[in-house]
């Protein structure tokens, strides 16, 4: 497989570029010059610009990066663990499960912390999708996707029930939040979700080489010395934590976890020792750039989930159509 060192560095450094672009662009453009003023001590600094940068734009970019890291890392992990390049947290229903957990905690059970609720139900969703699809120690590609659809639909229906039960004020916020948006981003959200996302991503990052073995299949992984049951559980847990934390602050943002690892694999090959860190980097930049588009494209602001879906859905079709080219087939 071609190594493509340029691709490696391009992906690795892309978050920096995305950061620089996103900091400048917005409803209130911040020029290089304003930046210079801000970073030079002693200059008179405009309070307004400071507020825009530090209280609005910066937390939003940080949160976008965290969510991008979490979604792509979990996507790459789930693809390896389930030996299925066509899944991610969104398709398997982890996101829907997390959303239900959040809605439950917001609307009905305030005693349940949002992140915990999201985590519990995204884990349940993952286990459901896996158990439904597994037959005779194998998890066929297509059945896993179908069981993901089922699980997703189930939890979406549960969320709908909650939507019916809550008052209209809460309903509006739930609906907007479910579309997947970074518009609620602030430092509080970063503090709430950041540690969880980073913890899950760190686990995945540390175990990245073992994902190669996991993706060989149960019998093979066991022969190589992997305690399959336990490690699969650990990786799914890590993915669920990350996704749950991301969903709890931004709602459901789909397709990122599917698309990003694929693009990375196309550029640098399938070895997870490279795929995991580079997916995290590329996910962060993709998320931030998509969000920049979302908040600047039209007059108002559209949920970033719509942007990622507009990219992701055609990409999924493309993957389906080229099928065996990457050695997997349905």
């Amino acid at each position: 497989m071609r190594r493509r060192p340029w691709a490696y560095w391009l992906l690795l450094l892309s978050p920096l570029a995305a950061f620089l672009v996103a900091m400048q662009v917005g409803a209130y453009p911040v020029s290089w010059k304003a930046w210079w003023h801000l970073l030079t001590p002693g200059r008179s600094q405009e309070v307004q610009i400071q507020a825009i940068i530090f209280d609005i734009r910066l937390p939003r970019i940080v949160l976008g990066m965290l969510v991008g890291v979490g979604l792509s890392a979990s996507g790459a992990t789930l693809q390896a663990v389930f030996r299925n390049p066509l899944v991610d947290a969104y398709i398997l229903g982890l996101s829907a499960g997390a959303a239900f957990g959040c809605a439950l905690s917001v609307a009905l059970v305030p005693a349940l912390p949002i992140q915990v609720g999201a985590f519990i139900f995204s884990l349940i969703a993952a286990l459901l999708a896996f158990t439904l699809a597994r037959t005779r120690r194998e998890v066929p590609t297509l059945s896993l996707i179908l069981s993901g659809v089922v699980v997703s639909a189930f939890f979406t229906a549960l969320v709908s029930i909650i939507k019916f039960m809550v008052d209209p004020m809460k309903l509006a916020s739930i609906v907007f939040w479910l579309m997947g948006s970074l518009s609620q981003a602030d430092w509080r959200a970063v503090r709430q979700a950041g540690p969880w996302i980073l913890a899950g991503a760190a686990l995945i990052w540390l175990g990245r080489w073992r994902l190669n073995a996991m993706s060989m299949g149960e019998a093979e992984a066991r022969a190589l010395g992997v305690d399959v049951g336990r490690e699969r559980g650990l990786f799914i847990l890590a993915a669920a934590v990350t996704v749950a934390a991301a969903v709890s602050v931004t709602g459901i943002i789909g397709w990122v976890g599917l698309m990003i690892p694929h693009i990375v694999r196309m550029l640098v090959g399938p070895d997870h020792r490279r795929v995991i860190p580079l997916s995290m980097a590329a996910g962060a930049s993709f998320m931030v750039l998509s969000d920049t588009v979302a908040r600047t494209m039209v007059g108002g602001e559209i949920p970033v989930g719509i942007i990622t879906t507009l990219f992701g859905a055609p990409f999924f079709i493309y993957l389906l159509k080229r099928g065996g080219a990457e050695s997997w087939s349905l």
Partner: peptide, 9 residues
């Protein structure tokens, strides 16, 4: 027999 999903080298 063995059918890998990803094209590792």
């Amino acid at each position: 027999e063995h059918h890998p999903v990803f094209p590792y080298t």
